[in-house]
């Protein structure tokens, strides 16, 4: 349950941005959440609803862009989207591979009222 810490960090970051941009309010935050980012989307949403109170993001919407995982098979080189664990290459059947994408927790865009 570290989602509250993550949202706290998010709110600090977007408030810094709002100050830099001279914005009065934050209207929308678009966050990319990787499949293996350690964060649970639903818990991010509920932490956001609670922690945004009393901040310039009080009326903001949090849009989550869920990022699927991508794995590269180290045997045949295929890049694929794994469905479950363990990773199994759909072409050659090799177990495991290198995770190329899916660990992000990235603020993609913020809408401000200026």
């Amino acid at each position: 349950m570290h989602e509250a810490s993550l949202i706290q960090a998010l709110l600090e970051q977007v408030q810094d941005l709002a100050r830099r941009e001279g914005a009065r309010r934050i209207l929308r935050i678009q966050l990319r959440v990787g499949r293996f980012s350690t964060a649970v989307p639903e818990l991010l949403e509920s932490a956001f609803e609670i922690l945004k109170q009393g901040t310039p993001a009080e009326e903001a919407r949090l849009d989550l862009h869920l990022e699927p995982a991508r794995v590269r098979c180290e045997t045949c080189g295929l890049e694929y989207e794994p469905e479950d664990l363990p990773f199994v290459c759909p072409r050659c059947g090799t177990w495991g591979g290198t995770l190329l994408q899916g660990r992000d927790l990235v603020i993609e865009a913020v809408d401000l009222e200026v």
Binding site: Q13, V106, D111
Partner: peptide, 16 residues
């Protein structure tokens, strides 16, 4: 009042 979209692409844990 005007709206402005800022494309950030910044990790949520940047300060950490």
């Amino acid at each position: 009042m005007a709206q402005k979209r800022v494309v950030l692409e910044e990790g949520i844990l940047k300060s950490n």
